[in-house]
């Protein structure tokens, strides 16, 4: 997924991470798992955020690094899930 196709989703993911990384300014392609912030509590909050903000369900099979490792990966993951569910993209 690119910037242009999912700008709003990308923006809200950035905003969520900004709030949760104690001010750490993460680049869109920077690996979250290498920041030292990621623990299971953080991941749970991230999953709840994704589910509630984008109205989709994260299944256990989706819990893979490649889906959650960066702003870009998350944006792509959300778009993929929404497309699969046939849901209209929402912010």
């Amino acid at each position: 997924m690119t910037d242009t196709s999912q700008p709003q989703a990308r923006e809200s993911i950035r905003e969520f991470l900004g709030r949760h990384l104690s001010g750490y300014d993460i680049g869109d392609d920077e690996n979250l798992f290498e920041t030292g912030y990621v623990n299971s509590l953080f991941l749970l909050q991230l999953v709840v955020f994704v589910e509630e903000t984008f109205g989709l369900e994260v299944e256990d099979g989706d819990l893979r690094r490649e889906n959650f490792c960066s702003v870009s990966a998350l944006t792509g993951f959300v778009a993929g899930k929404q497309a699969a569910a046939g849901a209209p993209p929402q912010p």
């Binding site: 798992f33 990621v38 623990n39 299971s40 509590l41 819990l63 893979r64 690094r65």
Partner: peptide, 17 residues
């Protein structure tokens, strides 16, 4: 917390990559 940790363990340990 153990249950939650186990759910995310594969991701935290980097299993899938």
């Amino acid at each position: 917390s153990i249950s939650r940790d186990l759910r995310f363990h594969r991701m935290l340990a980097g299993g899938s990559t």
